[in-house]
């Protein structure tokens, strides 16, 4: 154990098997292939060569402290949304910063305030592909939401809405997941108003194309992950 706290006040202890699983990815080959491939620095000057390709896994468990923004993430576990308010200029940050970045405030330390569970979509995207950890939940919507009164926007998942109904300015509610774990995925947004079709960013033709895309992504996720697939967009 590399991370030694002075005192553990409260904990959700991680399954120590993770240490073993991380050790299993130990940089040692678990397979190899002898392949034939091209050799050469330009496409018009290629020859053929053989290459040995090994498979070598690696994994780690990070013991990560949220530092002075820990109150925010502990708040998520308690199902409360906090922002950081600068006592000098009054700016409220969510995502919080422990020191105000306003040039006049000379890195003044901020104070915690509880925030309303309301906000507005500033911008968004419909994800049809993702990094490894999130593939099972494709397709999904990410929205950067300005929580009421804040001067920054928070990346969140936007649920219970058709992707073509989302637009900047849409009012949303902020919700907590049933079992928070202590990261930003503990909150998600849902529409707080009936979306106005006149504000859509897509034409009917684009919507049809997107529906088709969503269907294809869903089929791909189900094919790849079977019962573990949890697509976030219902068509």
């Amino acid at each position: 154990m590399t991370y030694r706290p002075k005192k553990i006040v409260e904990a959700w202890e991680y399954n120590k098997q993770w240490d073993e699983w991380a050790r299993q990815g130990n940089w040692s080959p678990v397979g190899w292939r002898w392949v034939e491939g091209p050799k050469g620095y330009r496409l018009d000057q290629l020859s053929t060569a053989n290459y040995l390709v090994i498979q070598r896994p690696h994994a780690s468990v990070y013991h990560h402290s949220y530092g002075m923004t820990s109150r925010f993430f502990k708040g998520l576990i308690e199902k409360k949304l906090y922002g950081a308010k600068c006592p000098k200029c009054g700016a409220i940050y969510c995502p919080p910063r422990a020191h105000c970045w306003n040039p006049e405030c000379r890195l003044q330390e901020t104070e915690w305030v509880e925030l309303p569970l309301r906000g507005e979509v500033h911008t968004f995207s419909v994800m049809a592909f993702s990094a490894t950890p999130f593939l099972k939940t494709l397709p999904f919507i990410i929205a950067y939401v300005r929580v009421e009164g804040c001067c920054t926007t928070v990346p969140t998942r936007l649920m219970k809405i058709n992707p073509w109904d989302v637009y900047p300015g849409l009012k949303v509610n902020i919700n907590f997941v049933e079992h928070p774990k202590g990261d930003i995925m503990d909150i998600y947004c849902t529409p707080a108003e009936t979306p106005d079709p006149s504000k859509r960013m897509m034409t009917q033709e684009q919507i049809e194309r997107l529906k088709n895309d969503m269907q294809k992504v869903k089929e791909w996720v189900v094919r790849k992950f079977g019962s573990e697939a949890k697509p976030s967009i219902e068509i």
């Binding site: 500033h122 911008t123 968004f124 990410i142 998942r157 900047p168 990261d183 995925m185």
Partner: peptide, 24 residues
């Protein structure tokens, strides 16, 4: 990695939200 990545973010996604805003 405390904020943008855990919600399922990656670079295509980040640039997509920026472009959505510019389109808007």
């Amino acid at each position: 990695t405390d904020w943008d990545f855990p919600v399922g973010g990656y670079y295509t996604g980040y640039y997509a939200v920026l472009e959505t805003r510019h389109m808007h």
